[in-house]
Every structure is written in structure tokens, then in C-alpha cells.
Simulated scan of single mutants.
Amino acid sequence: MCFPLIFCGWMLFSLIFAFGDVAVNHTTTLFVNHGQSAKIRCNYNPTNDTESMTAVLQTLNLSLCSYYFYDNTWKTHHCKDPVRFIGIPETNDITFELLNLQVQDTGTYTCTVKRIVKPPQVDLGVQRVQVIVRPVLLLSCVKRPDGSTMILCSVEFYPDSLEQLWIRDGDVLNSSYSNKSFNGSFSQQSYLLLPPQTFSDTIYSCWVNHSSLNKPLVANLSSSVCYESEGVTVIVTVVFVMLTVALTVFLITLVICKHYRRTRQQSVSPVGVIFTPEPVLHDPLQSEILYSTLGDHHPVPCSLAVVHSFA
């Protein structure tokens, strides 16, 4: 009889402890991609005697956005740019929206709703949400100073915990070299040197696993893409050189032609000649036209006078 009672008591204590632990440490997890947004809905118990209350969103000890409710209206106290507040008094809904999330924004956010009037102050609800921004993975073709081709696997992540592998046809490869830096979030670059170009096309994969992921990330890149980009670069360089040479030859030819024309003109007219128009001579015997000021204004020709001599 005692054993069943002890067993039942232990089970009841375990259930109470388990449910209490869940109630205290319960956290909702949101998985979002880089650049997207996440909505944190604040769960709380509204009361009929609440005249004024506050809603605060914070992470660790940093307050991100706070609003206070008074006269049936939500008013801002302070709020950072990446955060937007949505409060609907009719439905008692309170939501904080995190905009344009970056990898370094990964963390736990807490929404606290508190009644401040009527006193005393009472916590109406505390909601914790863990926001996980998935790492950003990018593959690209790069060139070494000696002209050899490499594939670059660049990963941005937070917090500092990352596994990265190169895979070719199921085989794990060693990267040529890698480096890691920190600027608000961690960034790691891993390079893989490609062999000389062959007729076969090979698929290379960059495999990444991180503590914020529910499964690893894999990005693939074909070797032909890097070799094609190399060929395009060579063609563009050759075309640019040819155009430069053609333009140079054209400009030189133009200068030579102008110089030749100027030399030829100077050889034909070595001395400049100034032509002065001859003056127009009037005949003294030319008839003149006289105008009368009387009657009709008709010109009256006036001939030269003839003088007769009387012997």
C-alpha cells in the first residue's frame, strides 16, 4: 500500500515540477530569413480596472520599443527604427514587428505588458520569443594574383558557432585557406582552388551547419561557370584592346591629314595678296536729273547748254 502511494506522489510532484518548468521557461521560436520581418505577439490578461498600461519590447537589458496606453489610445514613448508597434484597443491585441532582420539580430526578445493605473503596478503578461535569422551563404568565382581560378564560399552568421565543408561528387575536400572576421556578425570566407580546365563539368558544394539552423545549408556551383566567366573576361579584354588601338590609329590619321592640308595651302599661296577695288569714275557729261518743286513732281531732264557764237 505504501509503495503505490509513494509512486503516485512522486509522479504528481514530477508533473507539477515539469509543468512549472515549462510555464517559466516557455519560449516561442521563430525562424526567419535574412532581410525578412518577424511579428512578436504579446500575450497578456487584460483586466476591466485597467486605465493605463505599458507594453515594452526588449532584448537582454536593452529596451527596443515602448508604448503606453491612456484614454483608449496607444502612444509612443520611444521606439527604434527597425521596430514597428501595432496596438488595437478594440481587440486588446499588441504586436511588435521586427523589420529587415539581419544575422546579428538573432536573439531572445521579451514583451512585457504592465498595468500602471489603477495601482498597484501589475504584470499582465510576459512573452518571450527567440528569433533565429538563418545564416547567409554565397558562392562565387574569384581569381588569384597568379591567374588561377578559385571558388569562394562566404558565410555570415551569429553567434560564433559554424561548421563548413567542401564537397565534390560526395568527397570531402580541404579548402585552400579560410579567414573569419567580426563586424556585428561573424563572416567567414573559405577558398577552394580549382584544377586546370577539363572537358568534364564538376559540381562543387559548400556545406554549412550552424547552431541557429534546424538543418544544414548547401550551395552548389558548377566549375564550368567559373571557366566561362574566365573566357568572357579574356574576350572582353581583347575587344577593349582592339578598340583602343583602332581609336588611336584614327586620331593619328586625322592629325596627319590636317597637317597635310595646311602645308599644301601654304605652298600654293605663300604671300597673301590684298585686292583693293578700283574707284568708280563718273562721266562728267552724264546727264543729271532735276526735280521741280512746283506742280506735278515729274523729273525734268536737263541737257547741257549750247553756246552759239556770233561773228
Rank of each mutant, 00 (worst) to 15 (best):
residue 2 C to M: 11
residue 4 P to C: 10
residue 7 F to Y: 15
residue 12 L to M: 12
residue 13 F to V: 12
residue 19 F to W: 14
residue 19 F to Y: 14
residue 22 V to F: 13
residue 24 V to Y: 12
residue 26 H to I: 10
residue 26 H to P: 00
residue 27 T to L: 03
residue 39 K to G: 08
residue 40 I to D: 05
residue 42 C to Y: 03
residue 45 N to H: 09
residue 54 T to D: 03
residue 56 V to L: 05
residue 61 N to S: 06
residue 73 T to H: 05
residue 73 T to C: 01
residue 79 C to G: 04
residue 80 K to S: 07
residue 83 V to T: 04
residue 84 R to F: 02
residue 90 E to R: 12
residue 93 D to I: 11
residue 93 D to A: 09
residue 96 F to Y: 15
residue 96 F to Q: 05
residue 97 E to V: 01
residue 97 E to G: 03
residue 99 L to P: 01
residue 103 V to P: 00
residue 104 Q to S: 15
residue 106 T to H: 07
residue 110 T to C: 09
residue 121 Q to V: 13
residue 123 D to T: 15
residue 124 L to V: 07
residue 125 G to T: 07
residue 131 V to E: 03
residue 132 I to P: 00
residue 132 I to Q: 11
residue 138 L to R: 15
residue 144 R to L: 14
residue 145 P to F: 00
residue 148 S to H: 09
residue 150 M to D: 11
residue 157 F to R: 08
residue 158 Y to T: 04
residue 159 P to A: 07
residue 160 D to M: 09
residue 161 S to A: 06
residue 161 S to Y: 09
residue 177 Y to H: 14
residue 178 S to C: 07
residue 179 N to Q: 10
residue 180 K to M: 06
residue 180 K to Q: 13
residue 182 F to V: 03
residue 182 F to C: 09
residue 183 N to S: 09
residue 185 S to F: 15
residue 193 L to E: 05
residue 194 L to Q: 00
residue 197 Q to F: 04
residue 202 T to R: 06
residue 202 T to A: 02
residue 203 I to P: 04
residue 207 W to G: 03
residue 210 H to G: 01
residue 213 L to W: 12
residue 219 A to V: 00
residue 223 S to P: 02
residue 224 S to W: 02
residue 226 C to V: 02
residue 228 E to P: 01
residue 230 E to G: 12
residue 232 V to I: 09
residue 237 T to M: 01
residue 238 V to K: 02
residue 241 V to T: 08
residue 241 V to F: 15
residue 244 T to R: 13
residue 244 T to F: 14
residue 247 L to Q: 14
residue 248 T to L: 11
residue 254 L to Q: 13
residue 255 V to M: 08
residue 255 V to C: 04
residue 259 H to Y: 10
residue 259 H to W: 07
residue 263 T to C: 04
residue 265 Q to A: 11
residue 269 S to I: 12
residue 272 G to P: 07
residue 273 V to E: 13
residue 278 E to M: 05
residue 282 H to F: 10
residue 286 Q to F: 00
residue 292 S to V: 03
residue 298 H to R: 14
residue 302 C to F: 15
residue 303 S to Q: 12
residue 304 L to C: 07
residue 304 L to M: 05
residue 305 A to T: 11
residue 305 A to W: 15
residue 306 V to P: 00
residue 310 F to R: 11
